[in-house]
């Protein structure tokens, strides 16, 4: 039901998200690696290995959308699921236009997350 070979990278400055989200993702049967910032992700092997990126919008230093632009600039095409604490339709539309798979507003349900992972083609069911 799950494809063990898929790797999902989580980038969020909030500790509780970094704790809770990987466990939930693993429950969906994917491998997970969590990073506190965009730069630590870019400097890790996960940068080239990850099949999907779960990315917080508002972060210190490089923000989620900036990382999205940076990856695009580097030609690293990787499905991105944004997560944000602030509901803003304008930002959501812009991110989707830039190629994001989904943009989830915190708090989100496990079903919403699972649906997004399916859209990112990391889970099949």
């Amino acid at each position: 039901m799950t494809d063990k070979s898929k790797l999902v990278a989580v980038v969020d400055d909030d500790e509780s998200v970094r704790e809770a989200l990987p466990d939930l993702l693993r429950a969906f049967g994917v491998q997970v690696e969590a990073f506190t910032s965009a730069s630590s992700f870019l400097g890790s092997p996960a940068y080239s290995l990850a099949d999907c990126l779960v990315l917080d919008v508002a972060m210190p230093e490089m923000s989620g959308p900036e990382l999205q632009q940076e990856l695009k600039k580097r030609g690293r095409n990787i499905p991105i699921i944004f997560i944000t604490a602030i509901r803003d339709e304008d930002i959501r539309k812009r991110l989707m236009r830039e190629g994001a798979v989904d943009c989830l507003t915190k708090p989100f349900s496990d079903d919403e997350l699972h649906e997004a992972l399916r859209a990112a083609k990391v889970t099949k069911t």
Binding site: S16, V17, D23, L24
Partner: peptide, 14 residues
């Protein structure tokens, strides 16, 4: 408020 709230929901789901 949303930050811990999303943690609660994610943990509960897990």
């Amino acid at each position: 408020v949303n930050q811990p709230l999303s943690g609660i929901i994610m943990n509960a789901s897990t």
